[in-house]
């Protein structure tokens, strides 16, 4: 376990070393958030509440969804793929630690850094510029914390899984990009899923994606509580378990295929 935390810490440090890059990323995420907020404000016009979301909550939604981009690595993540192509995967595999946990630890460090230096500042920026809403009870904050951690776990296990394609293909960027497109479409990142037709929401609930962004947003805004919250959390746990198990199975098959030359 000590190795695990050590890896997490190193990965965290690696993230915070590039300060200029962190600030640049922050500004970009914030700017896009402003654009998205403007679009929603324009859409609402004179309307007060649409699909159970009022304008303040809609603006807050853009903040929360921009804030989790880095934390959940929503746009791209090909680190594991790259190690397969450079051959670094060989030395990672002979480390006295499960390969899955080796990456989990590093991604945790990355996520914690992204939380502290991206998600939190973005929300602070939003609070300064817009009139946003906040979770209003201790239970809701607690629920949010749990849901965010689970969202990260689902996101990691999904990214790990699609990166494994590198074991089979000489170039896996296409298939990985494909995975990320599906993720952003069904996760409620582009727009809140509540605005979409019911059949689409039902369709997306059969995928792990809404449990990454949409669940986090809905818990933050207090749109789900009680039984609904329990169900969402339950779905998150199930998806995390399924994706981790599938990831490990595919990994085993992939390692069997792996041939590394030289030495």
């Amino acid at each position: 376990m000590r190795v695990f935390w050590e890896l997490t810490r190193r990965s965290f440090q690696r993230q915070v070393t590039y300060r200029a890059a962190t600030i640049a990323g922050l500004l970009t995420n914030f700017f896009f958030g402003m654009l998205r907020a403007s679009v929603l404000i324009g859409l609402y016009g004179q309307r007060e509440v649409v699909a159970g979301i009022d304008i303040r909550e809609a603006v807050t939604y853009t903040g929360v969804s921009q804030a989790v981009i880095g934390l959940l690595s929503l746009f791209s993540w090909v680190e594991l793929m790259n190690t397969v192509y450079t051959g670094a995967v060989a030395s990672d595999l002979i480390k006295p630690m499960s390969y899955y946990r080796f990456w989990l630890a590093q991604d945790l460090g990355r996520a914690v850094a992204q939380f502290g230096f991206r998600a939190v500042p973005i929300m602070i920026g939003y609070a300064l510029v817009f009139d946003i809403t906040y979770p209003h009870s201790l239970e809701q904050w607690l629920a949010l914390a749990i849901v965010v951690v689970m969202a990260w776990l689902i996101s990691f296990s999904f990214r790990f899984l699609i990166n494994l394609a590198a074991f089979w293909m000489p170039n896996a960027t296409g298939i990985i990009r494909f995975g990320f497109v599906l993720m952003s479409f069904f996760s409620g990142f582009i727009m809140p899923l509540r605005f979409f037709p019911e059949w689409f929401v039902r369709l997306s609930s059969f995928t792990p994606f809404p449990y990454m962004v949409n669940t986090v947003v809905e818990v933050y805004l207090g749109l789900v509580s009680g039984r609904g919250l329990m169900l969402a959390l339950f779905a998150q746990i199930i998806w995390a378990i399924v994706l981790i198990l599938v990831g490990k199975l595919v990994l085993r098959a992939g390692i069997r295929r792996l041939v590394i030359l030289g030495g």
């Binding site: 293909m169 000489p170 960027t173 296409g174 298939i175 990009r177 494909f178 990320f180 497109v181």
Partner: peptide
């Protein structure tokens, strides 16, 4: 890399 190109174009 034909398959990769295909998925790449499709994803884009």
């Amino acid at each position: 890399y034909r398959f990769n190109l295909f998925t790449d174009v499709l994803a884009t």
